[in-house]
Design a protein around this nucleic acid. Structure first.
Lengths: 130, 130
DNA sequence: ATATGTGCAAAGCATTTGCGGAGAT
DNA sequence: ATCTCCGCAAATGCTTTGCACATAT
């Protein structure tokens, strides 16, 4: 049976309060505020437990360290190359299975878009304008 | 100056001959045929060197160990959840930028499809048929 | 009271690095 | 002959695990 501990609450609250997916170390550092004696092993164990319970989703990105987020509906991500922030993209291409050759069975897909977020794109266009 | 060694040739040839991206261990195991005394450190060192020379591309996948492939034109990948092999998908959705909210600038994208490859899908349908 | 959770330290794993010797030029 | 490259083994860095104590129920 799953117990409600100070550590687990601190870890979960960090993800609830953050508007974006966080890495192990971001969670560790921030959760210390709510659980000062927190050890890194406890963070790993609780992230995994929360994931198994369906309360957190693993966000695996190609070439990036993993992050976790509070589950929402199916979505993808946009990574800004300038500020390194990760954004949620709610749209999803509907016809993705049509890319596959005959005989292949599609079960899931990940899409990561990269480029400049609104803020960084604006900042860059200002620079080149002057 | 870069030397042409038995080990480097064996490693590169494995990638050239394989029709799909390979992991470090796949490369290691197969390259032993051409270089029996091969050590794993040499594999890592040569993969990195070949990548720096532009002769290999790193294929970074979300939540999967990295693979390398001989550079070709833009494409995506399909990962079989049963046999863990990675396949190249030559098609690419043309309208991917339309997923983005206004103001975001798209520079690149990664797509990973997951499911059952042709061989594994066939094997599973045989099992459930009998 | 008791069984799960925690913190610590040690163990695992994949990858990298240092080093003496082998091999390509 | 020289200098890069190799294989080995040790060193990393991140994650997991074993264990004894703490704590939620």
């Amino acid at each position: 049976m799953i117990r409600s501990t100070q550590q687990r609450k601190a870890i979960y609250d960090v993800l609830i309060d953050s508007g974006r997916p966080l890495s192990v170390n971001e969670i560790f550092e921030q959760a210390k505020n709510g659980a000062p004696t927190l050890g890194i092993a406890t963070v790993y164990r609780n992230i995994k437990a929360l994931q198994d319970e369906g309360k957190l989703n693993l966000v695996a990105l190609p070439g990036e360290s993993p992050r976790w987020e509070v589950p929402t509906e199916h979505h993808h991500h946009f990574l800004c190359r300038t500020c390194d922030r990760l954004f949620e993209i709610r749209n999803c291409p509907t016809n993705i299975g049509s890319l596959l050759p005959d005989g292949y069975v599609l079960e899931d897909h990940d899409i990561l878009l990269r480029g400049q977020c609104r803020d960084c794109a604006k900042r860059k266009s200002l620079k080149s304008d002057k």
